[in-house]
Design a binder for these strands. Structure first.
Lengths: 241, 241, 241, 241
DNA sequence: AATGAATGAGCATTCATTCAT
DNA sequence: TATGAATGAATGCTCATTCAT
């Protein structure tokens, strides 16, 4: 779209440009997450990047562009990591469990990032054109619907999932539920523990445990999602008779 | 210092005042939901209420106060309605189902309201003091944790729920998951259907179906959550032969 | 303080009206002096008076009117007190000394009041019509120019003042100098002592001492102004003779 | 984090910036003097400077900062000029006279400036930290206490001043009296002449004449302060027999 | 006489963005 | 490529005052 002709090549320095861009996005992501997307001003963004406002505008012509670029980065990161996740899984159910556990880890280790996405959805999804969102997803999302739907089909085929599921519908319902749960916990942050006395991680893992139980074929073997909290196994909080 | 006048007759016009207050809050809720909390200016708020800015400030001295008042109203409404919900339910599981179905209806009928709460959590929960939030909940929430925990205990006792649950933990996990799912769907709004080709209602009901299946005792009778969409029973979308 | 009236009789009550008026003026004077005339809002004034804003406007229809009323009160008080001052003095010089010492006492005992007048002059004298000021002075000032000019004439006649004075000019110069000095000291307040390490009272008394020396006939007897500080005589801080 | 760029060349446009700053301060000083510091709005300030409000805030981030900058400028100007004043004076008394006459000229020629300082003291000296004031004075005041105290010592040594003075105390008393008198006259402005029928200049010169007479050693020669009004010698208003 | 309610005009300040160099 | 300077359009909020009861 942007024809890159201006003057033949006015000897540009793409490496430096890329470095600056990254610098801006890193600073911005940090600030957005710390204080909320709308609460951060361009002036703060430039200060944090060590640039001048006017220089900033040479890289991003609108604040929104920065936000979208960050969203893109996060999505790319997530999808890159999540596609590694299910490598070792065998059954469809195992794959789903692997995916959900990946989300649990993300919630623990990339809380700020999750929180950012929560804000993004809450604040912008209504205003900004679907296409932009979709094109972002298309760009970065090899794990997306396709892959996940496949997991469900696979699970139904190999008998690890209950047979009365509608692959499309269930896939989307579960993904949405997991994301919604994850983001809500990230949004509330410390408030969760203050309010409920449970750690974020425990709550999320209990949620996926229930979901997995709900998906599993009745006679399916006991491969529950693990109960690791922040990396270490925990003794089961409840007596499985 | 200011004379301790006992307000001989508290000769205010409380009815009128209350009417104005409501006028403001209604207009504000509408705008907040339409355009996002932070995107609405005080000027728009006053214009929409048909008042002057200065008059507005006689009722709410800060924008935040309006936001919190709306949050309070919504919570009160929700808790009032939700406490009617489980009247007829018998088993613990039935009660939980009734509660989750109430949330499904809320998502359908009060989408804007749910979306508002989603924004509120995403944007403000970090910044505002827990106490304020907690006191609001205390004020309006008779359904809160207590009631819900009780449902789980009851369900475990009457055999409708699996016995390996930790009432506290599960209760909070489920409530959070349901709220997170509900709010995410409300936030995405039409985008959901554009993006996934599934209605919001169907997705949410599928989610609670899976959750309930995950909670249910293995031999528990087939009382699934209904598959009504927007009030009418739907023919099961899936009979996987 | 808090009027414990219920409903005495229904007719008009000039006594009550006068009491309310005083209440307002007292509160206002306090606030004006504490924080500066322009820095006090009508809302604060009404709060401090224990009245409603609208009630306030039944007594004073403009903020300015309150200010002028206070100025009037102060002038009346000052002139009442100052006319007692010179009762016992014999020579013209003695009378002048008595007058200046009266100002020293006023500076010590009514500092806030003096400060208020300083503000008034600095801020309002340019904007408000001379006539208003003059009429105020006429109302309350029996000591004014006339009296003071007379003192100088008397002093020249009885040999206590140097003979090369122009009564009109000198009178006004001295009065103005004394007032200017007094008000500046009151304005600076504690700052004076912090900055110069001298008490306000000492500085003012030294000033009038020099002035009186400047007025005195060369051979005039040693009736200097006293060196009392806050009421008690002090041993002369400097080598006389 | 913010790159420690050494500002390769401090490539600002300092000349232009300084010009703008001056433009703002000049306009502000004029307005403050004309209408009173608190009566001038930022909007008026910007309009008078020919700038946009937003541009203004790039130079001064608070109204207070403008006020203090003006105070600083005035003090610097005064101290620069006043240090030239006493160049030719021989005796200590002569130096004092030179200083007081300098103040008389300032009152005539820089009335607005004096009036501004009067307002500043009356309105702000209570609220603003002494340190700020002191640091300003330290910055600009080579004539300050030190110099003046020296004059008095010198005058006592050379016999031009009466011997019964306390250098510290007298110095401060006289300086304060002169400033107080000067500022009061400037504050009242035209009102002085309307009210008293004497020109400001005449009143101030009469004041310093009396003060000088009060300081002078009894046998000291007749070097009174001159009776020039606005630069021209005036015939003595009174016949010194 | 007292006061709850309303308000117009204004206020200091902010901010995303553009422009000239 | 970088940036100092400029700015139009808001923004949240205040205040003296009036009106109807």
């Amino acid at each position: 779209m942007a024809s890159k002709k201006r003057k033949p090549p006015p000897r540009t320095y793409p490496a430096h440009r890329e470095r600056q861009r990254k610098r801006i996005l890193d600073a911005a992501e940090k600030l957005f997450v710390e204080r909320g997307i709308d609460r951060v001003t361009m002036a703060e963004l430039t200060a944090a990047s060590g640039l001048q406002p006017s220089t900033m505008y040479q890289y991003f012509s609108k604040k929104d562009d920065i936000v979208w670029a960050i969203v893109g980065n996060i999505m790319a990161r997530v999808s890159a990591r999540s596609s590694e996740a299910d490598a070792s899984a065998k059954s469809g159910l195992d794959k789903i469990i692997a995916f959900l556990e990946y989300m649990a880890e993300e919630l623990s280790n990339q809380r700020a990032q999750v929180r950012f996405m929560a804000q993004f959805d809450a604040m912008y999804s209504h205003d900004w054109p679907v296409e932009r969102r979709l094109s972002l997803e298309a760009e970065s999302n090899n794990m997306g619907s396709e892959v996940f739907r496949e997991m469900i089909r696979e699970g139904m085929a190999d008998g690890s999932l209950r047979s009365d599921l509608d692959p499309d519908l269930t896939m989307q319902a579960i993904v949405n539920a997991a994301i919604g749960t994850q983001r809500r916990l990230a949004s509330l942050g410390n408030k969760v523990e203050l309010e409920y006395g449970q750690s974020i991680d425990r709550l999320f893992r209990e949620t996926i445990r229930v979901i997995v139980l709900g998906l599993r074929a009745t006679g399916s073997p006991q491969n529950e999602p693990s109960k690791r909290v922040k990396g270490r196994k925990v003794t089961p909080a409840r007596r499985t008779k």
